[in-house]
Computed example of a mutant assay.
Amino acid sequence: MKSGLDTAQLMVKVQAWGRELALSQIGVAGVDLSAAEPGLLAWLDAGFHGEMGYMASHGLRRARPAELVPGTVSVITARLDYLPQGTPDDWTEAERQRLQRPGEAIVSIYARGRDYHKVLRNRLQKLAERIAAEVGPFGHRAFTDSAPVLEAELAQRSGQGWRGKHTLILSREGGSMFFLGEIYVDLALPASEPVSDHCGACSACIEVCPTRAIVAPQRLDARRCISYLTIEHAGPIPEDLRPLIGNRIYGCDDCQTACPWNKFAQRSPLPDFDPREGLTGATLVDLFAWTEDEFLRRTEGSPIRRIGHARWLRNIALAMGNALRQGDDPAIRLALRSELEHADPVVREQVAWALAQAQPA
Rank of each mutant, 00 (worst) to 15 (best):
L5H: 10
T7N: 09
T7M: 05
L10P: 08
V12W: 01
G18F: 03
L21V: 10
A29E: 06
A29C: 12
G30A: 11
A35H: 12
E37T: 15
E37V: 15
P38F: 08
A42Q: 00
W43I: 00
F48Q: 01
G50A: 05
G53P: 01
M55S: 03
A56F: 02
L60V: 14
P65G: 11
L68T: 13
L68V: 15
P70R: 11
V73Q: 09
S74W: 03
I76M: 02
P84L: 10
Q85E: 13
Q85R: 15
Q85Y: 03
D90F: 04
W91C: 08
E95K: 14
E95C: 00
R96H: 06
R98P: 00
Q100H: 13
G103V: 10
A105P: 11
V107C: 07
V107H: 05
R114P: 01
L120K: 09
N122S: 15
R130V: 04
V135N: 07
G136P: 09
A152V: 11
A152S: 12
G164Q: 02
T167D: 04
T167R: 08
L189D: 03
S192W: 06
S192P: 11
V195D: 06
A204V: 07
A204W: 01
C205I: 01
P210S: 07
R212S: 15
R212W: 08
A213M: 08
V215A: 10
L220K: 13
S227G: 15
T230V: 08
I231S: 11
A234G: 01
G235K: 14
I237V: 15
I249P: 07
Y250S: 06
D253M: 05
D254S: 08
A258F: 00
A258N: 04
C259Q: 02
P260S: 05
F264I: 00
F264G: 10
Q266C: 13
L279P: 00
L284G: 03
V285E: 14
A289V: 07
T291R: 10
E294D: 14
R297Y: 13
R305G: 04
I307R: 15
A319W: 09
M320I: 12
G321M: 10
R325T: 12
G327D: 03
A331R: 12
R333I: 08
R333S: 10
A335E: 05
A343V: 12
A343I: 13
V346K: 13
R348Y: 09
L355S: 08
A356N: 14
